[in-house]
């Protein structure tokens, strides 16, 4: 079983990460151009990886680590595809 002290510390860490996600969400909502929004969404995605790992320890489910690995790969590829689309107007260039 997880100790109560460490559980409190993990919960506090997760809450602070959620606060940073909300700050980034503000930038994604108002953010003057499309590039500010893409950057903010990328930041939210990378913060979500860490949040998933911490949730894996809070609920004691090792499966969450696989999900966070998958999320890291998907977030990276998604950002690259979005940047390429914004630059050239198409994703598959022949």
């Amino acid at each position: 079983m997880i100790e109560p002290d460490m559980l409190t510390i993990f919960l506090a860490t997760a809450l602070l990460i959620v606060v940073t996600i909300i700050l980034a969400l503000y930038r994604a909502t108002i953010g003057p151009e499309v590039y500010n929004r893409v950057a903010a969404v990328n930041v939210i995605g990378t913060k979500t990886i860490v949040l998933l790992v911490i949730i894996g320890y809070i609920f004691e489910r090792p499966l969450f680590f696989d999900i966070s690995l998958l999320y890291a790969l998907l977030n990276f590829i998604g950002t690259l595809a979005f940047a390429k689309y914004l630059e050239r107007g198409e994703v598959w260039s022949s």
Partner: peptide, 18 residues
Amino acid sequence: CFIFFANPTATHAIMKAA
């Protein structure tokens, strides 16, 4: 290792597009 490799690359990709 993946974060160290992927995060700067994603930053560079968005910046180059902009």
